[in-house]
């Protein structure tokens, strides 16, 4: 089924629960078709509330939401695994709610689950699934319905690295197919999304923000030859993230910011620098 897009606009959205202070204090946000908006913010800053309102499962206390696409794919933070129905049955029902062809949705969900490394059976009750596998079912129901608006609340939490990569590709592909995409992310994975707009929610207001770096600073691999025992040299050159003695050479992983100081110390010790290379992004730490 083709994606029927919508130009989502939140206008002066306020949200208050009971008498507590406002969670959202006048949020204006537009997400155009093919656009990806990533919202960051500290815990309890109202990101989930904002996403629930965008997805249409909650209403603002005041303000308006316009232009929501007719089909919304929504993944809540912590997708629950309490249903007694099997995942396959759940996905069929959700496809019907999304007005998506059941056979097409089942096929694309099966393919996505396989790509995400879903372990377990889609024919046994969902309540038996692990947290990560339940999350993958949640992703499948949101991503396999040709949604014009995709609202994903912390979709990368609980996913292992290969699944996180697959999800990056699927989110980018959904945007390319015409969907408006709104995601929150505290893992830093969303920084790798192409052409995403990054916003930060703080004090109930949205502000532009640079993308969150992908975890700690990237590493540099320094290869040394030292005139003394590698273990002794390593002790003298601490701190570093990881040391791997390789024969008579010493291979050290250090954060980018510390590499110059380490090289200076190595030269002072009388070591020779054999190579300095950036570490692979997914190198174990």
């Amino acid at each position: 089924m083709p994606v029927r897009p919508g130009a989502l606009r939140l206008e002066a959205v306020h949200k208050r629960y009971g008498r507590a202070p406002e969670v959202l204090a006048g949020v204006d946000l537009a997400v155009a078709p093919r656009e990806i908006v990533v919202v960051a913010g500290p815990n309890g800053s109202g990101k989930s509330t904002l996403l629930r309102i965008a997805a249409g499962s909650s209403r603002p206390t005041s303000g308006r939401v316009r232009g929501r696409a007719p089909v919304v794919g929504y993944l809540p933070d912590r997708f629950p695994a309490q249903l007694r129905m099997p995942a396959a049955v759940y996905l069929r029902h959700l496809a019907a709610l999304h007005r998506e062809n059941a056979a097409a949705a089942t096929e694309s969900a099966g393919e996505l689950l396989e790509a995400l490394g879903f372990v377990g059976s889609t024919r046994t009750p969902m309540s038996g699934l692990s947290k990560g596998n339940a999350q993958k079912i949640g992703l499948a129901q949101a991503l396999c319905c040709s949604a014009g608006l995709l609202v994903l609340d912390e979709p990368w939490s609980g996913l292992d690295a290969p699944a996180a990569q697959v999800l990056l590709g699927r989110v980018a592909a959904a945007a390319q197919d015409g969907a408006s995409v709104l995601v929150t992310d505290h893992t830093g994975t969303a920084a790798a999304l192409p052409r995403a707009r990054h916003l930060r929610l703080q004090g109930g207001e949205l502000r532009p923000s640079p993308p969150q770096p992908n975890g700690p600073a990237p590493l540099v691999v320094v290869e040394l030859w030292c005139p003394l025992d590698p273990a002794e040299a390593a002790a003298a050159l601490a701190p570093f993230v990881r040391a791997a003695p390789a024969g008579d050479r010493l291979v050290l992983h250090v954060p980018v910011g510390r590499s110059d100081a380490l090289l200076r110390a190595a030269l002072d010790l009388g070591c020779s620098i054999l190579s300095v290379t950036p570490a692979a992004r997914d190198a174990p730490r």
Partner: peptide
């Protein structure tokens, strides 16, 4: 239905 599951159902069914 679990309340969080309900938010998914509501978003999927359009209100």
């Amino acid at each position: 239905e679990d309340p969080v599951q309900r938010t998914v159902t509501v978003a999927a069914s359009g209100g």
